[in-house]
């Protein structure tokens, strides 16, 4: 799941908030396009945000948070 956004490398371009399929990321406010990880529990580790981030500011943790009925 998404683990970290490097503030120094973030370009505030809005790519990650726009591209996140699960709506995990939101802007800080309509005026401040700094992304925040607002709904981390919904991240599905698809790496969309990391692969597409122009600033290479995002690092996604490879382990998943939710394990249900694995045997």
């Amino acid at each position: 799941m998404i683990n970290n956004i490097d503030r120094d490398k973030c370009l505030q371009c809005g790519t990650c908030t726009e591209i996140c399929t699960k709506d995990v990321l939101r802007w800080q406010s309509p005026e401040n396009k700094t992304p925040i990880i607002k709904y981390p529990e919904d991240c599905q580790t698809c790496y969309n945000c990391e692969i597409m981030c122009p600033g290479t500011a995002i690092w996604v943790h490879p382990a998943q948070h939710k394990v249900v009925n694995c045997w």
Partner: peptide
């Protein structure tokens, strides 16, 4: 995770994966 779900999480002050020289490499906007 449960805690952050309520309040959100601002980007960290650290530099994940960046080179040590601090050079910022960018890619085209998709």
């Amino acid at each position: 995770v449960a805690g952050l779900a309520v309040t959100g999480c601002v980007p960290q002050e650290t530099k994940p994966g960046s080179d040590q020289a601090g050079e910022v490499k960018t890619k085209p906007l998709p």
